[in-house]
Amino acid sequence: ATNIVGKVKWYNSTKNFGFIEQDNGGKDVFVHKSAVDAAGLHSLEEGQDVIFDLEEKQGKAYAVNLRIK
Rank of each mutant, 00 (worst) to 15 (best):
A1C: 04
A1D: 11
A1N: 11
A1Y: 13
A1R: 06
A1M: 12
T2G: 07
T2W: 10
T2V: 11
T2Q: 11
T2I: 14
T2H: 14
T2S: 12
T2P: 10
T2K: 14
N3A: 06
N3Q: 07
N3M: 06
N3Y: 07
N3G: 09
N3T: 05
N3I: 03
N3L: 05
I4C: 04
I4N: 08
I4S: 07
I4A: 09
I4H: 06
I4V: 11
I4Y: 06
I4G: 05
V5S: 07
V5G: 06
V5H: 15
V5T: 08
V5L: 09
V5Y: 14
G6K: 00
G6Y: 01
G6N: 01
G6E: 00
G6I: 01
K7S: 06
K7R: 12
K7N: 05
K7T: 06
K7P: 02
K7M: 06
K7G: 02
K7Q: 06
V8G: 01
V8A: 02
V8H: 00
V8R: 00
V8P: 01
V8K: 00
V8D: 00
V8C: 04
V8L: 04
K9C: 03
K9M: 04
K9A: 06
K9N: 03
K9D: 01
K9W: 02
K9T: 03
K9L: 08
W10K: 05
W10D: 02
W10M: 09
W10Q: 03
W10P: 00
Y11R: 01
Y11F: 13
Y11Q: 01
N12G: 04
N12E: 07
N12V: 08
N12A: 09
S13C: 05
S13I: 13
T14Q: 10
T14N: 10
T14K: 10
T14F: 13
K15Q: 09
K15W: 14
K15R: 12
K15S: 08
K15P: 01
K15C: 04
N16L: 08
N16E: 08
N16T: 07
N16A: 11
F17Q: 03
F17I: 05
F17V: 03
F17M: 06
F17N: 02
G18I: 01
G18E: 00
G18L: 02
G18D: 00
G18A: 02
G18S: 01
G18P: 00
G18V: 01
F19T: 02
F19G: 01
F19E: 02
F19P: 00
F19W: 13
I20R: 00
I20P: 00
I20S: 00
I20Y: 00
I20F: 06
E21Y: 13
E21K: 15
E21T: 15
E21A: 14
E21H: 15
Q22M: 14
Q22L: 13
Q22K: 09
Q22E: 09
Q22H: 10
Q22I: 14
D23G: 15
D23V: 15
D23K: 15
D23Q: 15
D23I: 15
D23T: 15
D23H: 15
D23S: 15
N24A: 12
N24R: 08
N24Y: 11
N24D: 07
N24Q: 12
N24V: 12
G25A: 09
G25R: 11
G25K: 12
G25V: 08
G25L: 10
G25E: 08
G25P: 07
G26I: 08
G26V: 11
G26T: 14
G26A: 13
G26M: 15
G26C: 05
G26K: 13
K27F: 10
K27H: 12
K27S: 09
K27I: 10
K27P: 08
K27C: 04
K27Y: 09
K27G: 10
K27E: 06
D28T: 05
D28A: 06
D28R: 04
D28M: 09
V29N: 02
V29C: 04
V29H: 06
V29L: 04
V29R: 06
V29E: 01
V29K: 02
F30R: 02
F30Y: 07
F30A: 02
F30S: 02
F30W: 05
F30V: 03
V31G: 00
V31K: 00
V31Q: 00
V31R: 00
H32I: 02
H32M: 05
H32A: 05
H32W: 03
H32E: 03
H32T: 04
H32Y: 07
H32L: 04
K33V: 08
K33N: 05
K33G: 14
K33I: 06
K33E: 04
K33C: 04
K33H: 07
K33R: 10
S34D: 07
S34Y: 10
S34C: 04
S34W: 13
S34I: 09
S34N: 14
A35Y: 06
A35L: 03
A35I: 08
A35F: 06
A35S: 14
V36M: 08
V36L: 13
V36I: 09
V36E: 01
V36Q: 02
V36N: 02
A38Q: 10
A38V: 10
A38H: 09
A38Y: 12
A38D: 08
A39H: 03
A39P: 02
A39R: 04
A39N: 05
A39K: 05
A39E: 03
A39W: 03
A39S: 08
G40S: 09
G40M: 07
G40V: 04
G40Y: 06
G40W: 05
G40D: 08
G40I: 03
G40E: 08
G40A: 07
G40H: 12
G40Q: 09
L41K: 10
L41S: 07
L41F: 15
L41C: 04
L41H: 10
L41V: 13
L41P: 03
L41G: 07
H42T: 12
H42Q: 09
H42P: 12
H42Y: 14
S43P: 09
S43M: 12
S43Y: 15
L44Q: 01
L44F: 07
L44I: 08
L44A: 02
L44N: 01
L44K: 01
E45R: 13
E45H: 15
E45P: 13
E45C: 06
E45Y: 15
E46M: 15
E46N: 14
G47Q: 08
G47C: 04
G47I: 03
G47N: 09
G47P: 02
G47K: 14
Q48N: 07
Q48P: 02
Q48D: 08
Q48A: 11
Q48S: 11
Q48I: 13
D49Q: 15
D49G: 15
D49E: 09
D49F: 15
D49K: 15
D49A: 15
D49W: 15
D49S: 15
D49P: 15
D49H: 15
D49I: 15
V50K: 00
V50M: 09
V50G: 01
V50I: 11
I51Y: 15
I51R: 12
I51Q: 08
I51E: 12
I51H: 08
I51F: 13
F52G: 01
F52E: 00
F52D: 00
F52L: 03
F52I: 04
F52S: 01
F52Y: 08
F52T: 02
F52R: 00
D53M: 03
D53G: 03
D53Q: 04
D53N: 07
L54C: 04
L54H: 07
L54M: 11
L54F: 11
L54G: 02
E55H: 14
E55D: 11
E55S: 12
E55R: 10
E55V: 12
E55Y: 12
E55T: 12
E56R: 08
E56M: 12
K57N: 11
K57V: 11
K57G: 12
K57Y: 14
K57T: 07
Q58K: 12
Q58V: 09
Q58L: 13
Q58N: 14
Q58Y: 12
G59A: 11
G59N: 13
G59K: 08
G59H: 13
G59W: 09
G59D: 11
G59C: 04
G59S: 11
K60I: 07
K60C: 04
K60H: 14
K60V: 07
K60F: 09
K60Q: 10
K60Y: 10
A61K: 09
A61W: 14
A61D: 10
A61T: 14
A61R: 08
A61C: 04
A61G: 12
A61H: 11
Y62C: 04
Y62L: 07
Y62N: 09
Y62V: 06
Y62A: 09
Y62G: 07
Y62K: 12
Y62W: 12
A63V: 07
A63L: 03
A63R: 00
A63I: 03
V64L: 07
V64M: 09
V64R: 09
V64F: 11
V64I: 15
N65I: 02
N65E: 06
N65K: 08
N65G: 06
N65D: 05
N65P: 00
N65Q: 07
N65F: 08
N65H: 11
L66G: 00
L66A: 01
L66E: 00
L66N: 00
L66T: 01
L66Y: 00
L66K: 00
L66Q: 00
L66R: 00
R67D: 05
R67N: 08
R67A: 07
R67F: 10
R67P: 00
R67G: 05
R67K: 10
R67M: 10
R67Q: 15
I68C: 05
I68S: 12
I68Q: 13
I68D: 14
I68W: 14
K69T: 05
K69R: 07
K69V: 04
K69M: 04
K69A: 03
K69P: 03
K69E: 09
K69W: 03
K69L: 07
K69Q: 04
